[in-house]
């Protein structure tokens, strides 16, 4: 029997990192959006927070595109 413990560990580490990373950025994006709304209600300009939220969601979108790349064999 040839159990590939190394690959198994790799799956564990990569999955963990990818999940936590995506959710981390998404949560930061959601918080930045909420912050922007609060800033606007207070009459301030929320441009910086909008940009931050955009950057966070872009990272998540990148992760989704990479996921699609992995799923669709024609891209390989």
């Amino acid at each position: 029997m040839d159990v590939k413990w190394g690959s198994l560990g790799e799956v564990a580490v990569v999955s963990f990192g990818a999940t936590v990373g995506v959710v981390l950025f998404f949560a930061l994006g959601v918080r930045a959006l909420a912050g922007r709304d609060a800033a606007r209600t207070a009459g301030q300009d929320g441009t910086a927070l909008t940009a931050a939220a955009g950057a966070c969601f872009a990272v998540c979108a990148g992760a989704v595109l990479y996921g699609l790349y992995l799923i669709i064999p024609q891209f390989h």
Partner: peptide, 27 residues
């Protein structure tokens, strides 16, 4: 399970002070 656990914990920590409605809608 472990990945979702850590991610959930982080998500709630990060968005703890943001208004709940906006957070649920975003997610």
């Amino acid at each position: 399970g472990l990945a979702a656990l850590a991610a959930t914990y982080l998500a709630y920590r990060i968005t703890a002070r943001a208004p709940k409605d906006g957070v649920s809608k975003g997610f």
